[in-house]
Amino acid sequence: MADTSLAVQFKNVDKWFDDFHVLKNIDLKVLTGEKIVICGPSGSGKSTLVRCINSLEQHNSGNIMVQGKEVNKNLSKGTEVSSEVGMVFQQFNLFPHLTVKENLILGPMKARGLTRKEADDRAMKLLERVKIPEQVNKYPSQLSGGQQQRVAIARSLCMEPKIMLFDEPTSALDPEMIAEVLDVIIDLAQEGITMVVVTHEMGFAKKAADRMIFMDEGRIVETGTPDDFFNNPQTERCKLFLKQILQH
């Protein structure tokens, strides 16, 4: 029954924050290995949509399938899906009381049961991949924003997720640090991993995305290849958004 070529599937998903209808009848299929970029004005529900995938938010109706498993609507039981899904937050959310290495090995050791040696090896490999192996014994507060976000990416990858979610990964960064983080994400996109990225970095979207999704007021308004999306937007709302975001 479960389609293995689908990483994520939303069927008629609705969600409310009390009276606020934040997701309206969302239908979405993300293929395995696909890189999706979601954009749209603030408050359009992009972050909420992404957070529903790893049950940081619970949906009120409809179905969400992740890697062939249904995401439980009851949050307290929803932990099993999220271990297949890595997430990078806007605010990094590194554990400030742990060193970079401890941040990376905590999940693999406690949740995956790796030995310290295995976890250490994996952590070092990933730190080299995000190009900061020399920071391994520092604390997050001793790193720049860009370095912290790269550690956060490595921390997620340490769990060997099948799907990576990025929730505005560069929005909290100083401009000169955005590139170093995007480079790492683009590098990651070259591999087979499925990615869903919420971002306003349109240059990144053009380079890395297989498909663009534009959201407004809780709905998916437009979807298409980056080529179509940027050169030939169909809806007025999307045209206006692109005009505003690309004018500078």
Binding site: S82, M87, A111
Partner: peptide, 18 residues
Amino acid sequence: IEKGQTEAAKTVGLNYMQ
């Protein structure tokens, strides 16, 4: 302690007690 800490812990597979 910021809510993001709990969320990050959840995304690296930790349960409530951990």
